[in-house]
Each structure stands twice: as C-alpha cells, then as structure tokens.
Nucleic acid binder design. Structure first.
Length: 584
RNA sequence: GCGCCCGUAGCUCAGUUGGAUAGAGCAUCGGAUUUCUAAUCCGGAGGCCGCAGGUUCGAAUCCUGCCGGGCGCGCCA
C-alpha cells in the first residue's frame, strides 16, 4: 500500500465533507492538492498543501481552512499530531505504531511490495537498442539498452502491459556495406589472400564466420561474380548473423526483446505505401518545395519538388520529405509506417529510446504519431546522452575510423553485468555519464553499486548471525511476520521504516516520469539509512539486530531487516541487477 | 540563423513535476573499530541554484529576454 495515496483519499473525503457543509464551494478543482513527504524531517511525516491551494477560491484564510481540515484529520487513530505551520501547511505526524505496522505489511506483500495498478493494464510499446545490424554492440549502445530495459521493468511494476521491441534497420547503404565486407571474408574463406579490408568497409574479425558460412553455402559461385548477383543473398545471410551476435550481446546484460520488427518488411510489404495513403486521406501529404535552412551555407542546395508530410501542422519546425530523388522512400517514411504499425497493433502508449544525436528527430516522430492516430496515441522519445569511458580518470581512446570500439562484451566481461546496469542508471538519461573502469570496480561509498549491494549483503549477514543463536527458530518470512513490531522503538528504526514506506511512491513517480534513475538514487538513500542504523549497533550493542537471549526482540528487528532486504532486492531487480547475499 | 537538451558547493551530480531553512557523494578538517562485515558510521566547513525581468500565498522548478556549453538542421540510417 502507498500511504500517501491512502491519505490522499482520506483527504479527498474530508474535502468532500467540507463541501457538503458549505465550508468549501462545490465544484472545486482539487487536482493541485498534494500529499507528500516533507523535505525536512522536523515537519512531520506528511505535508498537505490543501489549505494553501484552496483558500483563495474558498475565500477563506488559509490557516483557518487548514484548521478545519486538521480537525478532521485528528480523528484518525493513527494520527499523533496535526500541526498548522507557516502560511498554512498541514503537517501530519503518525504514532510509532502506525509505522511499526508497515513492516508486516511489507513482509506480507513480499515481491509485490511497491507495485501498483496505475497502468490499468494498458499496452505500452517500448522500443530500444535498435542498433544497426552491422556488428556487435559497443559501449555506445549500452546505455540505451539498460535504460530501456529498466524502464520496461518499471512500467510492468505499476501495471502496464509492456512490449519490448527492437527495430532492425536492415536496409540501406550500411547494409550494402556489410554485404560487401562479408564478400571479402567469403573470398578469404575460399583461400584467397585478401590483404587489408578496404577503407569504408567493416574490418572486424566477427565477419569471418559469416564468410565461412557463405563459402560453404555457395562455394565459388560468387567469387568473381558482379556485385548485383551476390549483394542480396549476402545481405540475407549477414543480417541474421549480425542479429544473432547482437542478441547474444544483449543476453550478457539480461536483455531480451519480445518483438523484432524489420525495416525491410515495411518496404516490401507495402506498409509504407499504406501509411502514406492513410495520411493522404487526412490531407497532410503534398508535393512541395522546401526552403533551404537559414544561416548555413546552402552550397549544394537545389530547390526540388518532393513528397512532403505536413509535420508543421503537428508541432514540427518544417515539413518532412518522404521520397528520395531516386524514387525510394526516406528513412522517415519507413519510420512513419513502423509507428503506424505499432498503433494498429494497439499501442496507444509508445516509447522510443534513442541516442542524443537523434534529438532533431523527435518532433517529426511525434508529429507522425499524432497525425496517424488522430491524437489518440502518445509517443515519448527518451534521449540517452553519451557515455564517456574512463580508466583511472583518463579517457579511453577509441579509434573510430579503424572500427576499434570498446565492445559491450568487453565492458561486461571486465566489470560484470550488474555493475554496468546500475552505473548506467546513476545519471538522468539526458545527462552525460562518466564510466570509469577503476571507479566502478572500487568497493567503497564512492561506488553506489557496492554501497547498495553491501547493505543487502549486511542484511543477510545478520540473518546468518541470528541462525547461530536461534537455530531452532525459523527466520524465514513466515516466522518473522509473527514478530512483535512494537519492539521497534529506536528513532533510527522508525526512520528506516519511513524510508521503506515511501518505496511505492518512488516507483510510481519514476514510472510515470519514465525515469528509472530515481530507483537507483532511492536505493542509495535507503542503503545509507540502513548502514547508519547498523553502525548504531556498533556504538550501542543494545541496538544490534541479533540480541542473544532475547528472541522476541531479535525477531522483531530481523523482521525489519528482512523488509529492508526485500525492498533493496526488489529495487535492484527492477534495475536488472542481481542482489548479492555475500560480498567477501 | 532556427530547433531540442543543459547550466545547482572546489569536483561529480540529486532535487519527489510549484512547497517551508536548496541536498548527497568526492575532496578537505575532526571523531568512532576487543564488529551482527569499519567495504561502514557521526560531526564541521563549503551556495547570487548562469544573469535580468515576469507569473503567485510560495520559483532551482513555469513564462520572456540575454550569457555560456552540447546535439541536430532536404533526398544518412
């Protein structure tokens, strides 16, 4: 349960009563009324702004209105105090017993704790990675991959029906380059000395196996044949081979898409034509000439009449071309068809995760979705900024021309999947991120992954310790739910419970904002709260979790620790990180 | 020239979608270890939230204009 939502409902009922009693006018807009944790702990447990928000419309003094609301709030037995502070804030403080009851609630909810149904089972399509199938994934792809996957988890947690999708850009110039590169490897596999792979082609060794497959399949048939003979069949072998590589790479991070959509299919199945016809009927396609972009030297600019989508009607800056001068469709035309396809498959919520260099692409995509769905569907485009790879504070050099990227596999092999995933989510997606190999392997407070994992491991350490003293007593959740939570009296213990009580609210807010990094920050704060409590036990042995000879107190405290471990584990799993029970 | 993102402590960044006296970590200074794992904790110091206006009970957050940085700008994908 989300205590803030519960209180919000209570408050709405109170405001309804006040309206019935003509204290407040009817038909008030209550949407701005917020129930939230105050920043400052001295301001109680929950802050309510209702009086401030409503006073003007009700023509009342805010403090006076606050008094009327407060009076009703005080009738709740869990409420210890209701204070009216400053201009009219209502601060609610609960009895310890209210917080103590939360522990059992968390244990009973188990893995479901923090989940909700605000998604109402609605379908969401989240498209991420979508790297060109020309080679293995490199670091540049990792952030979007992790971000998209964590966001998918998060949306599922709050009750959306999520589809993880990958759009395969399996056509166009770079795929032809792939096929040509593979042709060299094919000749190599036939025993020819090919020397260096020419400039402009993909030089990577990962294409050698593809060459061998082709050699086995076609023998010498295409060895000296003209390109138009072999280009298509080589593409048909190379692309699936690259997709297999990519899926394998993603698997290293625990990422598995459910749907793979092909750009080629958009072209060949006439889906582009269908989408454009559909838009034509709506009158948003026309033949026209674009103005050259201002300010830049339009050296090779020639005015040209082309087929345009009236994107400016839907918030874009200029209308966008759909057909190239050679008569084929633009990438954008295929993308329109693809998003139309998603709409037809019933996705009214669509999310695209793209690199920040695609920022200029966002408006036209949203314009397209708006046009295609008559405004029924929404598209959120999340842009992931670059990751700077460092080693000991120094940038890792990557020869872009030689194709010597640091691969996803290399990164995962060196630091492990959990570390990669967590660190990628320690920044907002649109902020640049430093990834320092040395730092992320460090085992200190500097390193948020270890800090959080260590808290989880410490919790399990307490269970192990308890098992020494109370071997006969089950310490599993079932036994702990019978513990007497009233024994949890220390302010630090109550603080820890409060932190855990806000977990559902954090999950909900992170999901709605499409910001999984909030989970990482929350976990860090929660871990900090736990480490603090742990250390109190060092200073004052009476505050340790395991108290020899006092089984009741030990059980109560272990129930708290168990709840903590549950929340951290669930948070880590949302991020796709495996919680560790031991870190020695 | 236009559009999007960004500007918060010396450094790296949060800031609960408009709340109260702006918070963490690093670095710095001082303290806690016969430990349920000190891989941790407690405390001090550190701020014109880029600048200037505006909106209102209330602005780091919303609006406008500047300054500074990043990305992008017809037939690449």
């Amino acid at each position: 349960m989300n205590i803030f939502n519960t209180l919000q409902e209570q408050l709405q009922a109170i405001l309804g009563d006040l309206q019935d009693q003509k204290v407040l006018p009817g038909g008030l807009d209550l949407s701005a009324v917020a129930v939230e944790p105050p920043r400052d702990k001295s301001h109680g447990d929950v802050a309510i702004n209702a009086a401030l928000v409503l006073a003007k419309k009700a023509r009342l003094n805010p403090r006076e209105l606050a008094g009327k609301i407060a009076q009703k709030l005080r009738q709740d037995q869990a409420v210890k105090a209701v204070d009216i502070v400053g201009p009219g804030f209502i601060n609610v403080t609960f009895f310890n017993s209210f917080w103590q009851a939360r522990v059992n609630e968390i244990l009973k909810a188990g893995k479901k704790y923090g989940g909700s149904k605000i998604g109402k089972g609605e379908k969401v399509n989240i498209e991420y990675v979508s790297a060109n199938p020309t080679g293995p994934l490199h670091v540049g792809h990792v952030r979007g991959a992790v971000f998209g996957d964590a966001l998918a988890n998060l949306l599922e947690k709050v009750g959306y029906k999520v589809t993880r999708e990958y759009y395969i850009n399996d056509t166009g110039a770079q795929i032809d380059i792939l096929a040509r590169s593979v042709h060299f490897r094919y000749r190599e596999a036939l025993g020819e000395n090919i020397g260096d792979i020419p400039e402009g082609l993909y030089p990577g060794d990962y294409l050698k196996p593809v060459g061998q497959v082709l050699a086995k399949k076609y023998g010498e048939k295409f060895k000296n044949a003209p390109e138009e003979k072999w280009l298509a069949p080589f593409r048909d072998v190379a692309v699936p081979a690259m997709m297999a590589l990519i899926k394998e790479d993603l698997g290293l991070l625990g990422i598995h898409h459910q749907v793979f959509s092909s750009e080629t299919k958009m072209h060949s199945a006439g889906e582009i034509l269908e989408a454009i016809d559909f838009l034509k009927e709506k009158g948003v396609i026309y033949q026209g000439v674009l103005e050259p972009p201002k300010g830049r030297k339009p050296e090779d600019w020639e005015p040209r009449e082309q087929t345009l989508f009236r994107a400016t009607d839907f918030g874009d800056d200029v209308d966008r071309p759909l057909v190239k001068s050679d008569g084929s469709y633009t990438y954008f035309a295929a993308d329109i068809a693809y998003h139309y396809d998603k709409f037809k498959r019933g996705y009214l919520h669509q999310i695209d995760v793209l690199g920040a260099d695609h920022g200029g692409y966002v408006k036209r995509l949203q314009a397209a979705v708006k046009a295609l769905s008559d405004g029924q569907a929404d598209l959120d485009v999340r842009l992931c900024q670059m990751v700077r790879l460092l080693r000991g504070g120094q940038p890792v050099k990557m020869g872009k021309r030689s194709g010597q990227f640091v691969t996803l596999r290399e990164v995962v092999d060196e630091v492990g999947p959990g570390v990669v995933r967590f660190i990628m989510l320690t920044r907002k997606n649109d902020a640049q991120l430093d990834f320092d190999f040395d730092k992320v392997k460090e085992q200190s407070r500097d390193n948020p992954v270890f800090y959080v994992q260590y808290a989880h491991a410490r919790a399990h350490s307490a269970f192990r310790k308890a098992a020494e003293y109370f071997p006969e007593k089950g310490l599993e959740i079932k036994a702990l739910t019978g513990a007497d939570a009233a024994l949890l009296e220390d302010p630090s213990e109550i603080d820890l419970i409060k932190a855990m009580a806000s977990w559902p609210r954090v999950v909900e807010a992170a999901a709605l904002a499409h910001e999984p990094h909030r989970i990482a920050f929350y976990l860090y704060d929660l871990a900090s709260e736990f480490h603090s409590l742990w250390n109190k036990g060092n200073d004052d042995p009476g505050l340790r979790f395991v108290i020899e000879g006092n089984q009741a107190l030990t059980l109560a405290r272990l129930s708290l620790v168990r709840a903590l471990a549950l929340v951290i584990a669930e948070g880590l799993e949302l991020l796709g990180v495996e919680p560790l029970k031991e870190m020695r």
